[in-house]
Design a protein around this nucleic acid. Structure first.
Length: 581
DNA sequence: GCCGTTTTCGGCCCGACTGTTTTCAGTCG
């Protein structure tokens, strides 16, 4: 019998789902947490799950014991888990939608299901409107109203936001809080500070001796649309645009502890707590507590000192994902992460020639203003009809314009390129002869997203084997909250990129952030260079570079790993290297 | 269900806030 092997992500999903199922059954909460911990452990494995299973080493992973090891092994080797399938079958499948609603957990969902026979969000909405929910024991008018609000919120946003949706709100709130006389230190925390690509909310942390005054100021801020919770030290609001924002106010001496705690990630913090315990200190969000007989910890004034007290060099927030940063920090081996100011130029920008909103000249001047020394223009190629892609004649004409503008703007340099479509079979949209006339080529997929993983992988590999393809554009084609990534074997593509000397783009558009930060360590290890491209469709779009830089940092990249940190003189041979091989 | 230099039983993170209670359960982070 052949079966489709479940991916690690799928298995993580099963474990998380098992935890929900057990919660609904009212199981021992520690058993539930064990499944959740098991899922988290599989998420951050440093080697393939299959290999661990084959070699019988799965049980060595922290958080995986005998029972979960058996279940995961069964899933990996047979593709099935009857224990799970039976549990799933005992509840209607739509019931699990309810876990997505703010303020609803397993206990309440169970009551709604048992008493009102609610099995979906649609059912729940109807029950609330019919007044049935408010009559339930433990519920009331307010609960019913809040559930309706949570349903509306869920339907509108599915609860996630892009980094560019949150950033302006964060900047405004930070500035206003910092200007408040009762605010000492003030910082963004949470996943925004860690530069995650998709954000559920915005977390702010303030130190103050008058927490009530600061909390009051916060909930009355003009950006606040609605107050969800409001206490002296903890408040929760909904901002314009539906973003949930939480504020914590702590005492000045608690600030570094709270900042690390609320920045996360949870897994990172667990590692820190364990290191503290090894020293006889218990670490929480406010302070160290010293166990009897243990040495006194040093006084802590900031995050650096806190890390130092645990024998670690300072870990930048972007790296706090429990992906090896603690070990590296203990060994003093953390990379010197890329700084945004180190970028000297960029590639993959559009102009009015295809689907951009700014002209060639406007783009060049904006790049100069941004402090860049060079700019690559890569308008769409002829097959991208929808984007007004350039044919050979128009491309030639653009090259002439670029030549003229280069004479005028020297020493600033515009590189003539193209964002050449990768056709369905992996062939390119222009002949090698045309490609050879350009300074560089970005190759990207803009059509036939529905191919199988194998076909898509072959397609990309064929494209990057072309000697004129300098860099691979937005590797998975994802667009946050509107288009899923197409299936592609990323390690296989990285392998061929390394072998052919092809750069991989870090598309800095906040809609894409593609290739994903989780893969850059592998690319770096294989010797593939990163190029941070804004995919700008206007002068404003050049600002995307800042997001790209944040994601590069999150991917552990340094100045040396990123091609467009090179000076003009040094970048030219890098663009030519592959075609000269 | 996981874990162990307090080791095979008995812990497992817990503080803050809301809403429905009259002292607390549920949710969240």
């Amino acid at each position: 019998m052949k079966f489709k092997k479940p991916t690690t992500e799928k298995i993580v999903e099963v474990l998380d789902h098992l935890a929900q199922l057990l919660e609904l059954r009212g199981e021992n909460p520690f058993k539930i947490r064990a499944y959740q911990r098991g899922a988290r452990a599989l998420e951050v494995l440093s080697e393939p799950l299959e290999r661990l299973v084959e070699e019988g080493r799965l049980g060595d992973v922290e958080g995986i014991g005998k029972a979960i090891e058996e279940k995961v092994t069964e899933l990996v080797t047979t593709g099935h888990l009857p224990y799970y399938e039976e549990l799933v079958a005992s509840f209607p499948v739509t019931l699990f939608e309810l876990f997505e609603l703010q303020g609803l957990g397993a206990k309440k969902i169970k009551i709604l299901y048992d008493v009102l026979k609610v099995t979906s969000i649609a059912d729940l909405e109807a029950a609330c409107k019919a007044g049935k929910v408010a009559e339930l024991a433990g519920f009331g008018e307010k609960s019913a109203a809040n559930i309706l609000k949570a349903i509306t919120f869920y339907q509108e946003h599915a609860g996630l936001f892009r980094i560019d949706q949150i950033a302006p709100l964060a900047e405004q709130l930070l500035a206003d809080l910092r200007a408040h006389p009762d605010v000492g230190q003030c910082q963004v925390a949470g996943s925004f500070r860690r530069c995650k690509e998709a954000l559920g909310d915005l977390d702010l942390l303030v130190s103050s001796k008058k927490p009530e005054a600061v909390s009051q100021f916060f909930v009355q801020h003009p950006l606040v649309q609605e107050v969800i919770a409001h206490g002296p030290t903890k408040s929760s609001v909904q901002l314009e645009g539906g973003v949930q924002c939480d504020l914590r106010v702590v005492k000045p001496e608690e600030f570094p502890f709270a900042l690390i705690y609320f920045t996360g990630s949870k897994e990172h913090n667990i590692r820190l707590r364990n290191r503290a315990l090894e020293r006889g200190w218990s670490l929480n969000e406010y302070r160290y507590t010293v166990e009897q007989g243990a040495a006194e910890p040093p006084l802590i004034h900031d995050e650096s000192e806190l890390y130092a007290s645990l024998g670690l060099s300072y870990i930048p927030p972007e790296l706090r994902e429990d992906r090896g940063e603690i070990v590296a920090a203990a060994a003093g081996m953390l990379p010197n992460l890329l700084e945004w100011t180190e970028l000297r130029g960029t590639f993959h920008c559009h102009t009015t020639a295809s689907d951009g909103k700014s002209t060639l000249r406007e783009m060049a001047l904006a790049a100069q203003e941004l402090g860049l020394d060079y700019l690559g223009i890569a308008d769409h190629s002829k097959s991208s009809y929808q984007a007004n892609g350039l044919n050979e004649a128009r491309l030639l004409q653009q090259q002439e314009e670029i030549k003229k503008l280069n004479n005028e703007l020297a020493p600033f340099r515009i590189f003539a390129g193209t964002e050449c479509d990768i056709l369905k079979d992996g062939a390119l949209d222009f002949s090698d002869e045309v490609l050879a006339s350009l300074d560089y080529v970005v190759a990207s997929v803009h059509s036939s997203f529905g191919l199988s993983e194998t076909a898509m992988t072959d397609r990309l590999i064929r494209a990057i084997q072309n000697p004129y393809v300098t860099m691979l554009g937005h590797l998975t084609g994802r667009r946050f909250f509107s288009r899923d990534p197409y299936p592609v074997n990323i390690p296989a593509v990285i392998e061929v990129a390394a072998a052919t000397g092809t750069m991989i783009e870090l598309n800095a558009s906040p809609y894409r952030l593609d290739m994903d930060w989780r893969w850059w360590s592998l690319a770096k290890e294989k010797g593939v260079k990163c190029v941070i491209n804004p995919d700008a469709h206007s002068t404003q779009g050049l600002q995307n570079l800042k997001y790209g830089c944040l994601i590069a940092r999150k991917g552990w990249l340094t100045k040396d790993d990123v091609v467009n940190t090179r000076s003009l003189e040094k970048v030219i041979p890098l663009l030519e290297a592959k075609r000269k091989r």
